[in-house]
Design a binder for these strands. Structure first.
Lengths: 203, 203
DNA sequence: CAGAGAATTCAACGAGTGTTGAATTCGAAT
DNA sequence: ATTCGAATTCAACACTCGTTGAATTCTCTG
């Protein structure tokens, strides 16, 4: 008899308010889902449900699943600023600073770095994105943090980056102890000497 | 008129020969597929086709997809022997030896280590398997390669292992240069000092 | 040689996925 | 006020995948 439909059913049609709120809610849910489950296992239906939205709305805003993934991984952080921050500290403490900076890049529940890393394991597009970020960052700004850039600098910086990426994988993806139950600060202190070695090799 | 069916059609029924050949062919194809595409994207249909076999035959031999995955990742190598090999060389060269041993663990097109690593990115079972292998190997035999096991030995060994795992990820999953285009020997030489630091820290 | 059981294929089911088109409602420009 | 377009939902399609049950052929034992 009552003219309104089922109490919990949302009718079709545009909602009052800013549509960008919907967009942001979808992106947040997508980042959480991709970081937790990787590209394949994260489903648009689950992301839409988490964002309180219909799956078709996700398609409307981002075209397809890959478009959503790409939009969710546009890095707001400028890598130049990231590395400059390391180069600003004295040479003897750059190992610790670099370790902390890199580890933070992959920490957090909806970290774009972690999400990209997870996806890269089985998706060539994600792997290419991460590869190009690493190579580009190293070639353009990374050498600034080195003590003597002339000799094998590119290789050393790459090893530095992959060392810390490996720690992030073990910590956040595999959950290897004692890494997973260790705060970033003490972890950075333990890694600092090795990282410092890549920045400023003796001899 | 000819009584035989279509030329390329294989009839149902048991084949002459050793059924273990089929089993081995399936396992080989599975290792290739899992290492190349990860657990989710590797399909039983593709594995069966690669092995020249019907998908139902895969189910008959291994029960389900996870059973196939587990069977394809039963490690033939004894981790104890692996680490003893490192402990056998003089202390000053253990960094190089450890690097080479670890990197080989993930090298190769159908490496079980690489395959497990790829799968671990999105599968909790695979992640647990790899985590337990790393933790167990370190706790039981890894400490033998250390110069002084007493102080932070567990953490140092874990960092060593994750360093080299990170290199493997960058090399084989992401394809980061110059790592991907570098042979294992020169790579091991470049990493050796950092690894040595974890085995025998100065001071 | 007869029969049990294993190996193999075939065809199909059922579940889950990304995606689409139509219908509906709101905001903004004219 | 009207109209156009954007946002949103609903229902459904098409596809792929893992898995299953029946039918067929081989091997092995007694």
């Amino acid at each position: 008899m009552s003219p309104r439909p089922a109490p919990e059913a949302r009718r079709a049609g545009r909602r009052p308010g800013d549509p960008d709120d919907t967009r942001r809610a979808i992106l947040d849910a997508a980042r959480r889902a991709f970081a937790a489950s990787g590209f394949d296992r994260a489903t648009i239906r689950a992301i839409a449900a988490d964002a309180g939205v219909d799956p078709a709305s996700v398609m409307h805003h981002f075209g397809n699943k890959r478009g959503l993934f790409v939009a969710a991984h546009e890095l707001p952080d400028d890598p130049v600023a990231l590395f400059s921050q390391i180069a600003a500290v004295p040479l003897s403490e750059r190992g610790h600073a670099a370790a902390l900076t890199y580890l933070r890049l992959f920490a957090g529940e909806s970290s774009a770095g972690l999400s990209l890393l997870r996806a890269a394991a089985s998706d060539e597009h994600a792997a290419a994105t991460l590869r190009e970020f690493i190579e580009h960052a190293i070639l353009t700004v990374g050498v600034k943090i080195l003590a003597r850039p002339e000799q094998d600098g590119e290789l050393r910086l790459t090893l530095l980056a992959t060392h810390l990426m490996g720690i992030a994988v073990a910590r956040q993806v595999l959950g290897v102890r004692p890494l997973a139950t260790c705060d970033l600060e003490t972890l950075a202190r333990a890694v600092a000497p090795a990282v410092q070695h890549y920045i400023d090799p003796p001899g």
